[in-house]
């Protein structure tokens, strides 16, 4: 499976999806007007990954800002990862990074955690 390697812009995050390494990373700002356009290829990739994932998957989410239009797409990404996690021997852990004192970002991670049946690790980054 070809990896996804997208460099971040002021509106969209850096994305690194690598099936060989079992790594999924989204970092930066996600405030595009058309979030579906941006996230659809990522969700499609994860669809294929669900069949091809070999071992465990480490997911790193480190967002500075995201709009509500992205929030739904991020949930779609997580739902695909949840499908991977349900498979025997295909454990997925989501590392949710938030800056020290950014209670809104911590709470956003907790919102996802309560919707999904997948392990979340909340990691505070020191400023």
């Amino acid at each position: 499976m070809d990896p996804i390697n997208k460099e971040g812009t002021p509106k969209t995050p850096t994305v690194i999806f690598d099936a060989d390494k079992g790594k999924v990373e989204i970092r930066g700002r996600s405030i595009p007007e058309n979030s579906i356009e941006f996230y659809k290829p990522l969700v499609d990739w994860l669809d294929r990954y669900a069949d091809e994932a070999k071992g465990n998957t480490e997911v790193n989410i480190q967002l500075e800002y995201f709009n509500t239009s992205s929030s739904k797409c991020i949930l779609d990404v997580f739902k695909k990862l949840e499908a991977v996690h349900k498979k025997e021997g295909r454990e997925v852990v989501i590392n949710w990074y938030y800056e020290e004192d950014d209670e809104d970002m911590l709470e956003a991670g907790e919102d996802y955690q309560s919707i999904l049946k997948i392990p979340f690790k909340m990691i505070e980054i020191q400023e």
Partner: peptide
């Protein structure tokens, strides 16, 4: 508000425009 947000977020009716007033809830 937290519960309403999660409910609207996890609702398939949600459109790319936001919809369901999720922007306002946020």
């Amino acid at each position: 508000l937290k519960e309403l947000y999660k409910q609207v977020l996890n609702n398939d009716q949600f459109s790319n425009k936001g919809g369901g007033g999720i922007g306002m809830i946020d």
